[in-house]
């Protein structure tokens, strides 16, 4: 992509950036990440995306803001899966598959949940907070990173109503083949702890 920048004409560069994966010149296509779902299925979520990409919501089962966000994220799963996106929850902590699956059932997850105890996806997306959402293109480019919406203005400060539906807006932009207007937003929630193996 750097060569693309140096040698191609402006018109060619425009085409290059308009293509999925070319929007962020210099972003390396990530190596395959293989994870297990809470039901034991092995998946490569960045390799098998929807037509427009894949959406991850990084969560911790003990984070109240993560849990309070589930119903809204479930709605987005139901609404945008038929429109060409694949959705996942991602447990970023060291939690057993059984415990995670129980949690997924309790909160009626509308999409599969991945276990990421080594935080491979966390590092790839550069997530630091739960709940924090990331959208990757089918080519592996990160298109959005940040909050799901602005229901929580800060820790302990919950608005009466959502006034900015950031993840929904990003999904709309991508499905409309537009650049994401606000590709990075600041999430509010619980910091992601280091993985146990990293201590």
């Amino acid at each position: 992509m750097i060569q693309c920048k140096r040698h191609l004409s402006g018109a060619a560069l425009l085409i290059c950036t308009a293509l999925p994966g070319g929007a962020h010149a210099g972003t390396a296509v990530p190596a395959p990440v293989t994870l297990k779902t809470t039901t034991g299925k092995t998946v490569q979520p960045l390799q098998h995306t929807g037509k427009y990409g894949v959406v991850f919501l990084f969560i911790q089962h003990g984070c109240p803001i993560s849990n309070a966000t589930s119903p809204y994220y479930n709605k987005l799963c139901r609404e945008f899966t038929p429109k060409g996106f694949k959705f996942y929850y991602v447990f970023v902590e060291h939690v057993s598959a059984k415990q995670a699956e129980q949690h997924a059932k309790a909160y009626q997850y509308a999409c599969p949940a991945l276990l990421d105890p080594q935080q491979k996806l966390v590092h790839l997306a550069k997530a630091t907070i739960t709940p924090e959402a990331a959208i990757f293109s089918p080519q592996g480019t990160r298109l959005y990173m940040g909050r799901v919406n602005n229901l929580f203005a800060a820790l302990g400060i919950q608005r009466p109503h959502i006034t900015s539906s950031d993840l929904r807006n990003a999904l709309h932009d991508i499905a409309s083949r537009l650049p994401v207007a606000h590709p990075v937003t600041t999430a509010v929630g619980c910091y992601i702890p280091l993985p146990l193996t990293g201590r």
Binding site: E93, A154, L155, G156, C190, Y191, P193, R199
Partner: peptide, 17 residues
């Protein structure tokens, strides 16, 4: 405490906790 250290530091800093 170590697992939630950053959250503790942030929450106490703004006197939420």
């Amino acid at each position: 405490v170590e697992q939630h250290a950053q959250t503790i530091a942030a929450a106490t800093q703004i006197r939420y906790m």
